[in-house]
Design a binder for these strands. Structure first.
Length: 257
DNA sequence: GCCGTAACAATCTGCCGGCC
DNA sequence: GGCCGGCAGATTGTTACGGC
């Protein structure tokens, strides 16, 4: 008798193999490799599987047949950096690979540069280039023995140099590691954005259309972020000006406005 | 090395017959 | 009718092996 579990459909191994169309040994292999969760054990040789197991197996087979991904990569995809996305949403995300920003990559305005060329052209130090690469902000492409930095990395380097020119100098303590703050926040932002985006569009539009929207909306959102960033700086200044007038302990914005 | 597949022993399940 | 034991088949996890 399957364990009572609200409305979740429980299956025996035989049912699961029939539904998923893969042999038992394969399912055991996936469990062993951590690709799918362990079953709900009823006894030493009795276990129950849910629809989650079935969906995971179907997704694995789809990613293998359509995307030719190895199981190691599929595992990472299915972990989903927090595992909050549904099978369909993950599938959409994987389908988008190579379709978004492909036009920009095909016709770069700037020719890829080596680290030395990048340093010479923009003025950024070789040390900063290495730190940015270690942080995962710079993503050079290996071409033979050469490591080339693309348009995004060149633009970023130009911005770094401009920031120094306007006064955010290393001498004042503005180390390039400062960029890590932005990177971490942006990663969290994109994580959340992806969830909302995928939840609203998965199954409603073709992958090509989703990629088209994503590509078109990114510069718009970037502008909006720039505006919000500027406004937030103004708000922060105003808040401290206002709250510093009050006597007593120092104002703490973390405690709320 | 990756991705399964096959074989094995241990254990469970379901059926049947015997007994009370 | 209900309980118990025996048996065959089903199912399990583990491990060694094979194809590409």
């Amino acid at each position: 008798m399957p364990p009572k579990k609200s409305n979740i459909k429980m299956m025996r191994m035989k049912e699961l193999t029939a539904a998923a169309g893969v042999p038992r040994g394969t399912i055991q292999f996936y469990i062993k490799e951590g690709l799918i969760p362990k079953p709900i054990k009823q006894s030493a040789n009795s276990a129950f599987y849910t629809e989650e197991h079935l969906n995971d197996i179907l997704l694995i087979k789809e990613l293998q047949s359509k995307r030719f991904l190895p199981l190691s990569v599929i595992k990472e995809v299915m972990m989903g950096g927090g595992g909050k996305l549904s099978v369909n949403e993950i599938s959409t995300l994987v389908e988008l690979d190579g379709k978004v920003f492909s036009n920009i990559e095909e016709i770069p305005e700037l020719k890829p540069l080596t680290a030395k060329q990048l340093s010479k052209q923009t003025g950024i130090s070789l040390e900063d280039i290495k730190i940015l690469e270690d942080m995962g902000i710079f993503t050079p492409i290996k071409k033979g023995t050469k490591k080339l930095y693309g348009e995004d990395d060149i633009r970023f380097a130009e911005c770094r140099v401009k920031a120094i020119q306007v006064g955010l100098t290393p001498g004042l303590g503005f180390h390039i590691g400062f960029a890590k703050i932005h990177k971490e926040f942006i990663r969290k932002l994109v994580d959340e954005e992806s969830k909302v985006f995928l939840r609203l569009l998965t199954g409603k539009l073709e992958i090509e259309k989703i990629a088209e929207i994503l590509e078109a909306v990114t510069p718009i959102i970037n502008t909006m972020l720039g505006i919000m960033h500027k406004k937030e700086i103004e708000n922060t200044i105003k808040w401290y000006v206002l709250n510093s007038k009050a006597e007593g302990e120092l104002p703490d914005r973390e405690k709320g406005e």
